[in-house]
Simulated scan of single mutants.
Amino acid sequence: MSSTSIDKKIYSNLIDGLKIQNIYLNDLKLTNVNREIKGNSLSVKLDCKLDKIRNIKEKDGILEVFPNFSIQAFSDEDVLQVAFNIDIQFYIRYNIKNLADFEKIYIDTFINQNIPLNIWPYLREIISSLSTRIGFPALVIDPFTIKR
């Protein structure tokens, strides 16, 4: 969805009227840990899914989203060797002033652009910490950027 199809003033009003109430780790699954991989660094492939799991309570001004992230870490020495997979689901709850006044396009734009940005620091910390706890070098994830 293109940001040119929305009114920037209306979208700004949505952003100005929101507050993050909670961010929780909802589910985490670690699979395919390959302890045979040697080396001092890993590469990563990360996928984010935001499109299906959401709960909007317009009357109460509540937006709840359960973003899913799939992470696959590879050996830097052999990118065909998977070091481990992580599937993570977060729970994030927003209170949005006058939520019922905003059309679906504004909520969808917010979900697709802002939720990854809000979750990213938590995701980076979990991935880095978990990779060291299972015996691999700290896996450092680049800062989040929005593709334009």
Rank of each mutant, 00 (worst) to 15 (best):
P137M: 05
I119Y: 10
L123M: 15
L99D: 01
G61V: 05
D87G: 04
E36A: 11
N95H: 15
F90G: 11
T31R: 11
K8T: 08
A100W: 00
F136H: 07
Y91T: 15
K49F: 14
N114E: 13
S12I: 02
L99M: 02
N26W: 10
C48W: 06
N32A: 09
Y24Q: 08
D16A: 15
R54W: 00
Y106N: 04
S2M: 07
N98L: 02
S70P: 01
K8D: 09
K8L: 12
N40R: 00
R124Q: 13
P137V: 03
D27I: 07
K52T: 05
K97S: 10
A73D: 12
F136A: 09
K49V: 12
E77D: 14
Q81C: 04
L130W: 06
A100E: 11
I20H: 04
Y94R: 14
A73C: 07
K29G: 08
T31H: 02
D87Q: 05
T132F: 08
I88G: 03
P143N: 15
T145P: 01
L25F: 08
R124W: 08
L117F: 13
N22S: 08
L14Q: 12
E103T: 00
F110P: 01
K52F: 02
G135N: 12
Y91R: 15
V44I: 09
V33T: 11
S129W: 03
K38L: 01
I107K: 06
N55G: 00
V82A: 05
S70H: 11
I10L: 03
N85G: 01
R93A: 15
L117Y: 14
N68S: 13
L18Y: 11
E125D: 13
S70Y: 08
I96Q: 11
Y11L: 03
V44F: 02
I127L: 10
N26K: 14
N40S: 00
G39T: 00
E64P: 09
I10V: 12
I6P: 03
N22T: 12
L46R: 06
L42F: 00
D27C: 06
F69H: 07
D7T: 03
S3T: 12
K52H: 06
G17D: 13
K104M: 00
D51I: 08
L130I: 13
F74W: 07
I146V: 07
I115V: 15
I111H: 08
I53V: 00
N114Y: 13
N22E: 12
K147D: 09
P116F: 06
I105H: 01
K38E: 03
G135W: 07
F84Y: 07
Y91V: 14
F110V: 05
V82S: 04
L139M: 08
K59V: 09
K57C: 04
K9H: 06
C48L: 14
S129V: 08
L25K: 03
K59Y: 06
N55E: 05
K147H: 04
Q72F: 04
D7N: 14
N55S: 03
I107M: 06
W120S: 14
V44N: 02
Y106Q: 07
R148C: 02
N22G: 00
Y106T: 02
W120E: 13
P116S: 04
I56Y: 01
S129I: 03
I37R: 04
D7F: 02
F144L: 09
R124A: 14
V79F: 07
N34S: 12
S70A: 13
N13D: 15
